[in-house]
């Protein structure tokens, strides 16, 4: 027995040593890793897609499918941010309110003025960084559990928006602000490729690199898996956790910008998104409590959740029950993850 077995690692042979073959190996290795982490949720997604197609064959038409993707994009991005906080061992409940803030602030300030695009984008991103910093600093330095910190932030932001707008936000978003969530490139064959789809792919790719291929990502996973051990190995756990909250907040701002493209300006626009994002992360198999999680699986989890909502719609399930179904599946997903972990433990 014994021996660290080499075959398991052939996928990571450094390029320098085997220039020709290794690039493929390396790619194959990583892709395989992500596939392994995503396999269960991918299977669920395929089943749900199959059911949708059975009920509504038009779903496969590129415009219909791409419209679905566009609608799913904000959640996919939000979940890709949320997973950073969850693998670090926390929660970020403030993201729904932050989406609302993004939309409402942008509308109030631009008042439909297209020239305001850049400053407004900068402003909302800055707000995101600030909110994330506050979440992170309060959680790490003041030692408030993140679920409380971000619940507090959720209420603070929600209250502020209501106070500021009196419950009915005014102003309008310029078309060039709405284009990200609404417009699409014209392409041959498939017709249109929404900007949103490209943004999702870009965000997911960056997030994947960040969590799984950088020193920061590994330190974050280590912090979530064993904060004390990570700290005693030299990880600045305060810093990496604060960064995780900032990333989550930034993902909320980006999700808000996309959502602004097709949702109206309202004081409720982001409500419920925090729970959907957490559900998506859980569906993607990340461990609540930290230490384990995959961006790719999380993004697929978000897509699955949106597909499920669509399926429930097609089945004629009343809207309010969506929440209940969501409740059932997140509990189910955690139960499943627990069983899977036990089994792999022998």
């Amino acid at each position: 027995m014994s021996d660290t077995t080499k075959p398991a690692d052939e996928g990571r042979v450094p390029q320098r040593q085997q220039p020709a073959a290794s690039r493929l190996d390396r790619f194959g290795g990583h892709a395989l890793e992500h596939l392994k982490a995503s396999a269960p949720i991918l299977a669920v997604l395929i089943v749900i897609f199959a059911a949708i197609i059975y009920l509504n064959p038009a779903f496969l038409d590129p415009p219909v499918f791409l419209a679905f993707l566009r609608r799913a994009a904000p959640l996919m991005i939000l979940a890709a941010g949320q997973v950073f906080v969850i693998v670090s061992g926390g929660f970020d409940l403030s993201v729904g309110s932050l989406i609302t803030v993004t939309v409402v602030v942008a509308a109030a300030i631009t008042e439909g003025d297209p020239d305001a695009l850049i400053p407004v984008m900068m402003l909302v991103l800055l707000i995101g960084v600030l909110v994330g910093m506050v979440n992170g600093v309060v959680t790490t330095m003041l030692k408030v559990p993140s679920i409380i910190t971000t619940l507090g932030m959720l209420l603070i932001l929600r209250g502020a928006v209501f106070y500021w707008t009196g419950g009915s936000p005014t102003g309008a978003l310029a078309d060039n602000f709405r284009q990200f969530g609404r417009e699409a490139f014209d392409l041959p064959v498939i017709g249109q490729l929404p900007y949103a789809a490209i943004i999702v792919i870009a965000v997911a790719w960056i997030a994947t690199r960040l969590l799984h291929r950088t020193a920061f990502g590994h330190q974050l996973l280590a912090t979530g898996g064993g904060a004390r051990a990570a700290q005693l190995t030299g990880v600045n756990i305060t810093r990496v956790r604060i960064i995780a909250f900032v990333l989550s907040a930034l993902s909320a701002v980006i999700a808000g910008i996309l959502l602004a493209g097709f949702a109206g300006v309202s004081a409720q626009v982001g409500q419920g998104y925090e729970f959907r994002a957490i559900s998506a992360v859980v569906l993607g198999g990340a461990a609540i409590g930290g230490g384990r999680g995959s961006v790719v699986a999380t993004v697929i989890g978000a897509l699955t959740l949106e597909a499920l909502f669509m399926l429930l719609n097609l089945l004629g399930l009343p809207q309010p029950l969506r929440e209940s179904v969501q409740g059932v599946i997140i509990i189910g997903a955690v139960v499943y993850a627990g069983l899977r972990l036990q089994r792999s433990g022998g």
């Binding site: 590994h218 996973l221 280590a222 064993g226 051990a229 990570a230 005693l232 190995t233 030299g234």
Partner: peptide
């Protein structure tokens, strides 16, 4: 450290990640 499980190692992470962790903090 004396207590490997809580202070020495990140239990749910791999041999590889645990081994490389101090390097990655630099």
């Amino acid at each position: 450290t004396e207590d490997r499980k809580t202070q020495g190692l990140v239990l749910p992470r791999s041999v590889l990640e645990n081994t490389l962790l101090p390097l990655r903090t630099l």
